[in-house]
Design a protein around this nucleic acid. Structure first.
Length: 755
RNA sequence: GGGCGCUUAGCUCAGCGGGAGAGCACUGCUUUCACACGGCAGGGGUCGUAGGUUCAAUCCCUACAGCGCCCACCA
């Protein structure tokens, strides 16, 4: 909770709930009772995953299969009548509970032995040799020991052949009284050593092999899990899964990204009975009571159970409540409706069920999502949520999953302390491309902290220059090109960000915002309007209002990512807002605000400035030197643009003046091509002639290479014939553009050489 | 064993049928009145390998190699 608050999560904190709340407990009991009555919850004696350390059963999902280096032992069991049969095992101690040896019915090696009896060494027990297809001739020796009490497969085999079931472990996985006397009380691993040693001394240990194998561990205790025979409560998950599968198949609930639906289907279609009872003290106690003879009464309250028992026995009896509690995921699975007051038909339930979006990690799909789907559909007859957004998992810089035991946890609060919650949020959003985990590095967060600082300074600049949101301001009515342009850019940004959010592409939304704020708004717009703001000339008022409006909209679009700084700036930017930013209506600047002419004009200006800056930097012209600009071969559009932006072009490109002149340029000048015009910058005194010649030659060579590629493509008949006409046309235009630039630079080079 | 995903600039990752992008790092210049957590300019990639489809492949298909994850009862 503290982390969530620091991150700026904005839930309805007043509705915080805890699964052990009275209301939720009632829902849990009702669900249990109802499912029991419907036969979907039942009690059964079978093998469970037993945690010998925590002394409780756990579900399949809480078992962690780990790859380890293990050992395979080959034991020879004597067979009555003189021969013997060899089995392989990784768990020698369980042989004390063997009640058969199984071979494949078609395995010729062992056909003659089927029906005979082996003598189980140490335990000295007569056990049958049975034929069962479970036995795989390819594995081990083709003969497999059967321990129905301590192996899930063997349990099934035992059932098929009506084999006795011997439990040799107690709750600590120590050997019990069913083991031969010397073994009683031994830990399973100690017993293993002893069995191996004894078999060896009996001359019955045939071979020992080192192998790779997997072992089940309890995900909480880390203890090796033991299949153990106990009474437990089960949910018939297979039945509940049917509608839950259909709901996703039919798209009533959608996974984002959608390939997680496969994971969900895979598990749901192979789901096994869900063991829900736990022998721990913390949790919802199971509402079941036992009579003196063990008869079970399931009821909402003890009085009801007493009543049922009295009816059953014909007299009042004393009942004992089942001490077990429920798997926490059982109560969590009710969350979407139990928190809304169910089983009461509350207004909240009506209003909020089904919910819109569940946001969670993929590792929770089985534990929680699947259970909510099953229980929600069963009790509410409607999916619990329309969309399941599976977010990326945050890993450390090396891509390792963060875990307490590895000690590589990145504490979000520490990052927030250093860089701010906004920077962290923005970083996580920007890195959250679908289907990929996030490797979180502080450098990345730092970069976005800088972004927040940039935004802050930009806002400060606006404020210092009287950019205040103006009531009744209509961005469509802007007249200055630069204002029309930034309004266009903002309108595009709004559409892009909204679309990205609707598609759950938080990364795209964040990147659009970053580029707009830093690139379009700060680097260009603010720089361009500085002269206007700092003087009393020009469209000062319009510019102030426009800047304020754009900043306002930007803060809003950025708010989900950076709630703190945007809220702060929003309130600072204007007094007496009608609402706080977080509850203001999401902006939807219309596409009618987009002015393609303004965009084209500003693109030209940006290109012109950039070209001049680049050549200056490359030719080492001192930044303080102001150069004259002579524009040659300009058409009327360019001429008009120059007039409009003369002042800003002069400033940004550090020019002393601009003139149009189509005559040959003076000696010693830098030359660049912008569209149809050649920009000439006389630098007679400081020109590095050889350097400029090289630069021009290199640029011409590059263009020639391009032209060659285009010509090759355009000369290809099948390209011209089969490619879409607009593509062909586009290539042709680009080719001509390159050719034009090359020609002009060629002239420039000639002039230079003539000096 | 089954399934999913990844392989693009030094690092972390976008992109995706028509001339390779971002952030960080790096190089040069720049302390000009929003911001040095800044500005300007720049270097750097045969887009894992080999085939195929196509006028055109980093992008689609197939195989292979390497890496990661999930599921599974391999004695």
């Amino acid at each position: 909770t503290r982390q969530l608050r620091r991150l700026g999560a904005s839930p309805d904190w007043a509705r915080q709930r805890f699964t052990m709340d009275e209301g939720l407990s009632l829902a849990v009991r009702k669900v249990f009772v109802d499912l029991h009555r419907e036969g979907l919850i039942y009690r059964d004696k079978r093998l469970v995953n037993w945690d010998p350390m925590l002394h409780t059963a756990i579900s399949d999902l809480e078992v962690d299969q780990r790859e380890i280096k293990g050992t395979m032992w080959y034991f020879r069991y004597p067979v009555e009548g003189g021969s013997s049969i060899t089995i392989a095992t990784t768990r020698p101690e369980t042989m004390l509970g063997d009640t058969a040896v199984a071979v494949h019915p078609d395995d010729d090696r062992y056909k003659s032995l089927v029906g005979k009896f082996a003598i189980l060494p140490i335990a000295d027990r007569r056990i049958p040799i049975v034929a069962d297809t479970y036995s795989d001739p390819e594995k081990g020796t083709g003969a497999v020991k059967i321990t129905p009490g301590h192996d899930f497969n063997d349990f099934e085999v035992g059932r098929r052949h009506d084999l006795p079931l011997i439990n040799i472990f107690d709750e600590n996985a120590h050997l019990n009284e069913n083991a031969p006397a010397p073994y009683r009380g031994l830990d399973r691993f100690k017993a293993r050593e002893r069995v191996v040693a004894e078999m060896e001394s009996l001359g019955l240990l045939e071979k020992v092999e080192a192998i790779q194998m997997t072992l089940p561990y309890g995900d909480r205790s880390g203890a090796v899990i033991e299949p153990w025979l106990t009474d437990q409560w089960y949910v018939d998950a297979a039945k509940l899964a049917v509608p839950a599968i259909q709901a996703v198949e039919q798209g009533r609930t959608r996974f984002v990204p959608e390939n997680w639906a496969n994971t969900y289907f895979e598990w749901m279609r192979n789901i096994r009975p869900w063991c829900i009872s736990r022998q721990i003290w913390w949790g919802h106690q199971i509402p079941a009571w036992y009579g003196p003879d063990g008869h079970v009464f399931v009821a909402m309250r003890e009085e009801e159970a007493q009543g049922d028992a009295a009816k059953h026995y014909g007299t009042a009896v004393s009942l004992t409540r089942d001490p077990d509690v429920l798997d926490t995921w059982f109560s969590s699975g009710l969350w979407p409706f139990s928190t809304l007051g169910w089983p009461e038909r509350t207004p909240e339930l009506k209003r909020y069920y089904p919910t819109d979006v569940l946001v969670t990690g993929f590792d929770i799909i089985f534990f929680w999502v699947a259970r909510m789907m099953m229980l929600g559909l069963h009790f509410m007859h409607e999916v619990p949520f329309r969309t399941v957004y599976i977010h990326a998992l945050v890993r450390d810089e090396k891509g390792q999953k963060m875990s307490k035991s590895k000690g590589n946890i990145i504490d979000p609060v520490a990052l927030i302390d250093e860089y701010g919650a906004d920077a962290l949020r923005f970083t996580l959003a920007a890195l959250a491309s679908p289907g990929r985990d996030i490797k979180l590095s502080p450098a990345r967060v730092e970069g976005n902290r800088n972004f927040a600082t940039k935004l802050w300074n930009a806002a400060r600049f606006c404020q210092m220059n009287g950019c205040v949101p103006k009531a009744g301001f209509d961005p469509a009515k802007c007249e200055a090109t630069v204002n029309r342009w930034i309004v266009s850019e903002l309108a595009n940004l709004g559409a892009e960000v909204t679309a990205a959010l609707e598609n759950y592409r938080f990364d795209e939304a964040a990147n659009h915002l970053y580029r707009f704020v830093w690139g379009s708004f700060c680097d260009w717009y603010l720089e361009i309007i500085k002269p206007v703001l700092l003087s009393n000339q020009g469209p000062r008022e319009e510019t102030q209002s426009t800047a304020a409006w754009v900043l306002d909209q930007t803060l809003h679009l950025l708010h989900p990512f950076m709630p703190f700084i945007t809220e702060e700036l929003w309130e600072k930017l204007a007094h007496a807002r009608a609402t706080r930013l977080i509850s203001a209506e999401w902006p939807a600047p219309g596409q009618g605000l987009v002015d393609v002419h303004a965009s084209a004009e500003m693109n030209w200006l940006v290109r012109a400035v950039s070209e001049i800056r680049a050549v200056r930097a490359e030719m080492n012209i001192p930044p303080v030197a102001q150069l004259a600009l002579i524009i040659k071969d300009a058409n009327s559009v360019t001429a008009a643009r120059v007039e409009t932006h003369r002042e800003i072009l002069t400033k940004l490109a550090r020019l002393s003046g601009i003139e149009f002149n189509d005559k040959p340029p003076p000696k010693g000048a830098l030359q660049v091509v912008v569209d149809e015009a050649t920009f000439i910058l006389p630098v007679a005194g400081i020109l590095d002639v050889a350097g400029e010649r090289d630069r021009l030659a290199k640029e011409i060579a590059r263009l020639k290479g391009e032209i060659e590629r285009f010509d090759k493509k355009l000369g290809n008949e099948s390209f011209v014939a089969k490619a879409p006409p607009e593509v062909v046309e586009e290539q042709r235009e680009k080719r001509n553009e390159a050719a034009r630039a090359a020609a002009k630079l060629g002239e420039a080079l000639t002039r230079l050489a003539a000096m």
